[in-house]
Write a protein that binds this DNA or RNA. Sequence first.
RNA 1: GCCCGGGUGGCGAAAUAGGUAGACGCAAGGGACUUAAAAUCCCUCGGGAUCACUCCCAUGCCGGUUCGACUCCGGCCCCGGGCACCA
Length: 825
Amino acid sequence: MSHPSYNASTLEAKVQLYWQEQQSFKAIEDPKQEKFYCLTMFPYPSGHLHMGHVRNYTLGDVIARYQRMLGKNVLQPIGWDAFGLPAENAALKHQVAASSWTKENTTHMRLQFVQLGMAYDWDREFATCDPEYYRWEQWFFIQLFKRGLVYKKKAVVNWDPVDETVLANEQVIDGRGWRSGALIERKEIAQWFLKITDYAEELLSDLDTLTGWPQEVRTMQQHWIGRSQGAEIQFEIENSTETVSVFSTRLDTLAGATYLAIAAAHPLALSLSKDNAKIATFQKECAHLKVAEAQLATLKKKGIFSGLYALNPISGERMPIWLANFVIMEYGSGAVMAVPAHDQRDFEFAHKYALPIRPVIEPKDGSDWNYNLLPFTAYGTVIAPPSCAGLSSEQAIHQLITELSPKGKVRAKIHYRLRDWGISRQRYWGTPIPMINCPKCGSVPVAEKDLPVVLPTDITLTKPQSPLNTLPEFLNTHCPQCQTPAQRETDTFDTFVESSWYYARFACYDQHKSMLDDRVHYWTPVDQYVGGIEHAILHLLYARFFHKAMRDLGLLHSNEPFTRLLTQGMVLKDGAKMSKSKGNIVDPKTLLEKYGADTVRLFIIFAAPPVTSLEWSDSGVAGAHRFLHRLWDYCLQQQSILKNMAIESGPLQHTAVQSKRRELHQLLQQINHDYERQQFNTVVSGAMKILNLLEKGTRSTEEEAENALLKEGIGILLRVLAPIVPHITHVLWQDLGYGMDILKSSWPKISLDALDCDEMELVLQINGKLRGNLKVASDSSETSIKEMALGSPNLQRYLQGQTIQKVLYIPRRVINIVLGASHDA
RNA sequence: GCCCGGGUGGCGAAAUAGGUAGACGCAAGGGACUUAAAAUCCCUCGGGAUCACUCCCAUGCCGGUUCGACUCCGGCCCCGGGCACCA
């Protein structure tokens, strides 16, 4: 009767060694087998795993292991998103090289992944800071450059005048640099951009094909791309040859435009500051705004008259041009036409500065509208200009385009909110942009034979600036076109560039002659991508863009990188995100030591559905551990019965055993369904219910039937739990004589015979309120069921003296008796 | 500010297609076993009324649709994610 007690740490180490020796998770291309590529967003190697990681990677691992047991050829790789700001900060703080800090972190985190029992193909591991990885990124960038998808333009950055460095948005706190405390300045510098907007239409329309993505992510991307149909309008400027270009979706309101608002940094505005101190001051104020839209949106709207007038293309009327702090150069043309009668923001601004309000649209129903009180922003009936009077807004837009485009004043245009992707970073720890600045030829790509442009790694940072600018051996080179001495680009790529194509490289990890090879056609697209909802827009949009660009270069064939997407919620403690400053961190390390990986995995899967945030609970972990103990003890108690038994059971005669087997297969059905819809928390509760069920004896006299059910039940239980708690189920599977390797077993099948039932229980309602239950034979007719319901003794006191209006029967569920309306009403 | 989510017992949650609200687990209380404790096992466990049978209330708030609403619609409150240089 005595068996070894459950000892997670020795057991798990043993199983992990087995997987390693068997190379259980090595993925090999096999065209005959259906593949399944499961990928969890690779981590930034920050030093150690936190609970968010544990949740994230456990979810991916559960899916990968489940698919493997379904018989798929599974690829689950892992790597490191190794470039980025934290390494530079650590390098500066601890006076170590960013490269060695990163390397140490990956070593530690790799070990933690192994301890968690992750089923990774470790042969494919790489870090984005490996020159062999980023050389192909540089190569790809050059291909994009050759295709005209790369260009250089000036763009604004957060400039710290004391540290003399560019700051990320998160490094600007209350308008000041986080280290220096200096008031930051908006500074324009030349930067490289990728023309993601060339793909805007496809990125938008292909969202419809991503049926395996959460609808919320698709909606967010759709709004981010923000396609709007409208018109570009040229406004002439009084006493000037220059014009101001403006985009508007509401051409029907053009006659009501009473002023123009332009960005403080608009070329027109810049020329004014020389002679006008007030304008110069206003521009200086605007120059301290952070480069973040959120700040702009919450800004108090301010403006200043430029002294210039534009001419309304319809009425010829003079419209003052104002500089406004809420208009930015980065968006559209940096200028908007203001129609205070028909736009909320224009209305508020007009009130503040006493600018005229001119209604040109009225409500369709002809009702009165007080335009001085509230703008009328809906489509309506047009009053002006005369050529459009009486038309609907929609018709007027059409009419004005026809009327004004021959004169060159207006043209129909589709505008996207999406902006081109600025990929230049004035940072050290990143992929060098493979360009050379030649005094004669300008910007020239590095010759492909000279790739990679290797980032120097033996560097100790002494100040918060990129050292690349001052490293002669990095900086000095020759122009690949004319051989003149020239200098390298010292900016590095945005780290989103690395994460935009790593999933494809995993398929071809050891290919040193090209970026990708034929294996990418086998493995991609990724069948299941797992990651945080915080990546819903930027990362996922950039990766989709790269995928399409790779396709257009013939590197792969599919249209989208990720077929199915699971976005998991955060791990919270005491209702807040775990963070050092809040002191509510739970360290996976101590938990692993105390309980083992299976317990941690079980708890984190059980505690909440994948997509919602997860509240951490120490006692919940203890409960998960208790369940594994119970499973272990129960299974080993049955060892002598099970060990020498055939798995298949004969037909069951005994009804008690039969109904228990029905419950077992109902639970299996629910578990399968929950695996498919990725609600793994209820997979765990289903498994708990199976154990509860098996533990409950039937008191049957048919020992043989009971034992057969036991064998079947435990077999099912171990396999449905295997993706979640792979170590303990591996050992029990072996010890109970089911087979050598549970990974190679097949997924349990539902027995339809077992589900058969000749009775069903219905709910009785009166006016929708629960009033009782009714057991009927499964094959009863609707009429007889209704008769039985009306005759049910429990209901008589409700039915007494009432008129029955109707009786509803919802098959297999509910009978609802609707009584007549009460007479005293 | 804008876009996208979420809100159910003391706690994490469940309710598959609009059909028994609270499965499964945690915590708590009571009991068994034990010299004792731990572990384990058994019972109770949304609120209120009632000796009880039962009944009423209850899924953030207000309103609507429906025979029936946690689920669908409208309005509001609160919390979270994103807003283009954190990753």
